[in-house]
Nucleic acid binder design. Structure first.
Length: 564
RNA sequence: UGGGGAGUCGCCAAGUUGGUUAAGGCACCGGAUUUUGAUUCCGGCAUGCGUAGGUUCGAAUCCUACCUCCCCAGCCA
């Protein structure tokens, strides 16, 4: 368990007897899919409840029917469960409290603490003042309680058009905190709500709704992001002025930013609607749906949330941290198989034609309990194009003309002849096997290099999708004068036809494998069909101390754009 | 120029009732093992805690001033 300031606050509350348990909530608005930033919040809220043996609610903040949909609400529930968490009791909805919220509003009116305002949006802005100048009281601020009550009831009854009136808290138009300058708490909006349908034409605002919802659920610690810090006085004001005996503590922490991506629902939505990605679940998206489809694991994401910590300082976390968590999890769990994604034909000249030999290979070098499968070999095999070099750089351990290399789980071969096409491209290698090297090292010499391969005759065709970061800039939305779309990486997806070993024939969707020396891959949960159409998504590459070294030639684009 | 926050290694982040050599992770750099240049294993990596002063036997931790960055003027959340 990692200590952070929120735990310290909770520990102090528990020690002082202010609370005997911890009740948190994860309160998304169903207006988009969850992303990695939400995952941090999910892990924080549900994790705290678990660690302190308390409870955590899932509550939808569904107070703006114009933007919300059941598709989003369903996807969010699926994501929270997939991440490995279970909310306390039934799913909660802010709309469950509309009637109670309405009653509390009447209470505020009766106390002279809320009034119906006729100002138009433009007028209200003008009356609000600026950051440095106080606002002015609305001419409607001093209506009588009776008139306010009557007007508010008629608002609810649908007697006024959308936007004609609002209900405002009567606080202080001169407050240096703009959120306290008589904030609107109800607006008239004739929109069909995903749960209450057309039952209401007035909807409560976030600040008013959230604190009361928290209190009604007995939340002890209400965690939110830094931008709501200014709203805390309003959160407290509402609860201090209505008849409710629960007053949760709002605690703010900084949101998560990740290098080379964006975590803004608006921008993610833009990527989807403008077709820059295939959908919310595109494996390049930092959404939970996208990461899942890419092959990221719940355990890996949870570990990531643990490692990045919780604080109040702005932060942009390296993608490498997330990738390290995913690799670490997959390293222990993913069976190893071989696949060739950029094939180069190799003929084993001293291997008898028409003969197939099988050799058993373990699914995991450190976990014999994963079992083994038969790996067939025959006269023609595929190897990776970049495992061969005509003119190798210093330190090269792979195949060269006249050089030797070990075929993983199989023989040592020597490249005797390089076959080129008319354009001079290498199209085939003719190699000979050292028959004495099966399961043993050759005598009198060392063969350092080991490469992966598949038998051409037995290989299965597969579509492999190689994903790279979605943006070329570490902070695509961090440039004031440039649009984030300018930094889209044109090479973020490359689809190749690959050959995989027969053991993958009936792999189920969402199963994850390590393709040896290439990376971790996941059978696509949408398009992969066992036994017929094989589709694998590259989850993350293996660490590659050769490619990152100075001797290795760099790819044409970014370091991550290497084929392997 | 109003209010609210934040500044500890390239990226995160402990530490903040002042007390030995400023945790840990990612990244990076060495080296060992290895039929994945993977994994694993060893070792290295802030005389420094936004800056400048001050208090103190002693300060990242206290005081003063200053600097930089972020958020707020939706009938969004």
């Amino acid at each position: 368990m990692v200590q952070h300031f929120i735990r310290s606050l909770i520990d102090a509350d528990l020690a002082a007897g202010r609370h005997t348990t911890v009740v948190t909530r994860f309160p998304p608005e169903p207006n988009g899919y969850l992303h990695i930033g939400h995952a941090k919040s999910v892990c924080l809220n549900f994790g705290l409840a678990r660690d302190y043996q308390g409870r955590c609610n899932l509550r939808f903040d569904d107070t703006n029917p114009e933007k919300e949909s059941t598709e989003y609400a369903d996807a969010i529930q699926e994501d929270v469960r997939w991440l490995g968490f279970q909310w306390d009791g039934e799913v909660k909805w802010a709309s469950d409290y509309f009637q109670a919220l309405y009653a509390y509003a009447e209470e505020l009116i009766e106390k002279g603490l809320a009034y119906v305002d006729d100002l138009s949006p433009e007028e209200m802005r003008a009356y609000r003042g600026t950051l440095t100048e106080p606002g002015r009281d609305s001419p409607w601020r001093d209506r009588s309680v009776e008139e306010n009550l009557d007007l508010f009831r008629r608002m609810r009854a649908g007697e006024f058009p959308d936007g004609a009136k609002t209900l405002r808290a009567r606080i202080d138009m001169a407050s240096p905190n703009i959120n306290l300058r008589d904030p609107v708490i109800y607006r008239i909006k004739r929109a069909h709500h995903i749960r209450t349908g057309d039952a209401w034409v007035i909807y409560p605002m976030y600040d008013y709704t959230h604190c009361i919802s928290d209190a009604l659920e007995g939340i002890t610690h209400s965690l939110c992001t830094l931008e709501f810090e200014d709203h805390r006085p309003l959160y407290d004001w509402v609860l201090d002025h209505i008849s409710i005996d629960c007053h949760p503590q709002q605690i703010e922490f900084s949101r998560l930013e990740l290098h080379y991506t964006v975590t803004s629902k608006r921008k993610l939505n833009q990527l989807v609607t403008q077709g820059f990605v295939s959908g919310w679940d595109d494996p390049r998206m930092p959404t939970i749906h996208g990461m899942r489809r890419r092959g990221y694991t719940p355990e890996g994401i949870r570990e990531f949330a643990r490692r990045i910590g919780v604080s109040k300082s702005e932060n942009v976390v390296d993608m490498g941290v997330l990738e390290a968590c995913i690799r670490e999890d997959l390293e222990a769990k993913a069976p190893r198989v071989m696949a060739v994604i950029r094939p180069l034909k190799v003929t084993l000249t001293n291997f008898e034609a028409g003969v197939t030999a099988n050799r058993s290979a373990g699914f995991h070098p450190n976990h014999p309990e994963f079992g083994e499968r038969e790996v067939p070999i025959s006269r023609e095999i595929w190897i990776e194009q970049d495992d061969f070099a005509i003119d190798p750089p210093e330190g090269w351990q792979r195949l060269t003309p006249g050089g030797e290399v070990r075929l993983r789980y199989s023989y040592v071969i020597r490249c005797d002849e390089v076959v080129r096409d008319a354009a001079g491209r290498v199209v085939e290698l003719r190699c000979s096997i050292d028959h004495d090297t099966l399961g043993q090292n050759p005598k009198g010499r060392k063969v350092k290099g080991v490469i992966h391969w598949v038998a051409a005759e037995h290989a299965l065709a597969a579509e492999v999708r190689l994903y790279d970061r979605l943006f070329t800039d570490p902070e695509p939305d961090g440039h004031k004068d440039r649009d984030f779309l300018e930094f889209l990486n044109p090479h973020s997806l490359e689809t190749v036809q690959a050959w995989v070993e027969p053991a993958l024939r009936d792999a189920l969707p969402e199963l994850r494998y390590q393709f040896e020396r290439l990376g971790y891959f996941c059978a696509d949960r949408c398009e992969h069909q066992p036994g017929s159409r094989l589709v694998f998504n590259r989850t993350v590459m293996l660490k590659d101390s050769w490619a990152s070294g100075s001797e290795a030639p760099k790819g044409p684009h970014m370091d991550q754009q290497r084929g392997r």
